[in-house]
Amino acid sequence: MVELVLFVLAAAVTLGGALGVIIARNPVHAALHLVAVLVAVAVFFVMQQAPLLAAVQVIVYASAVVVLFLFVIMLLGIDRRESLTEPLRHQRPLAIAVAVALTIEVAVLAGHTWTTGARTQQGTLSGGAVEVLAENVFTRYLWPFEVLAVLLVVAVVGGVTLARHSGEPAGADDLGEGRAAPEPGEVPGP
């Protein structure tokens, strides 16, 4: 019974928040709806015996990532309403058709069994999900874990490259306007 109540609440917040993200005209409101979705998904994680993932979800996703979004929205000063008129004629019917097709597919699948009776081929979850998770990250999934390190290097290098001012003299490009003045001192690399 408790599970049912929790599920209905979390599902309502998840789907309502998701609709809020795509309907809200103001990006700040969209970001706040996103927080609601992320927290509700974290509740689902707890209900599905993934407490560690729920914690990480709240700390990394709902906090850091959304703050990053809000920071950029504020930095760029685009927290104004967006016109929802669509310049591309076919775009909107197409999008709605895709969404309807996906939803029908979901409805059809929901009537059937989703899972197929496959059983675990790896470590079971019993005996403390956190220990099993940690053990698998450093054994069976060592390779993708190591490769992800490259992704973090990319994020740092890319952020630094794009975010710093170019050392080029103004007016040398094909736009010649709206650019920041070159910085006098040079900015060190990453």
Binding site: V147, L162, S166
Partner: peptide, 20 residues
């Protein structure tokens, strides 16, 4: 993971010539 590691640098490289 490989898909992301190969794609994300390419997004950045595409946008590399910030003046254009």
């Amino acid at each position: 993971v490989a898909l992301e590691v190969l794609s994300i640098p390419l997004y950045l490289l595409t946008a590399f010539d910030r003046r254009r």
